[in-house]
């Protein structure tokens, strides 16, 4: 049974999205400018995984959207 997301959980979800976003950008730099092909390829793969992570985090927030109270509790 799904419960409303707590304020703490929401902060962790948002912080994690920032982390994933930063890693996507760092890997984009490596994918573009590494001289060694193995590192360019690894970076390209990691971009995909971090995009999946970000998608899952976004999905978790949206799944809990309708459960969130509109007024402060107590």
């Amino acid at each position: 049974m799904m419960q409303p997301v707590t304020a703490k959980e929401l902060e962790y979800l948002a912080d994690s999205l920032s982390n994933e976003d930063l890693l996507i950008k760092q890997n984009a730099v490596m994918a573009a400018s590494a001289t060694n092909g193995a590192f360019r390829q690894a970076a390209a793969q990691m971009i995909q995984t971090h995009q999946q992570h970000a998608q899952m985090l976004l999905q978790a927030i949206s799944q809990h959207q309708h459960l969130a109270p509109t007024q402060p509790q107590q």
């Binding site: 799904m2 959980e9 962790y12 912080d15 994690s16 982390n19 994933e20 978790a60």
Partner: peptide, 18 residues
């Protein structure tokens, strides 16, 4: 750093799904 943050987030989650 992100591995550690996910571990912290998991230990502080209330909802089983999260």
């Amino acid at each position: 750093r992100v591995v550690r943050e996910y571990a912290t987030a998991a230990t502080e989650a209330n909802c089983q799904q999260i």
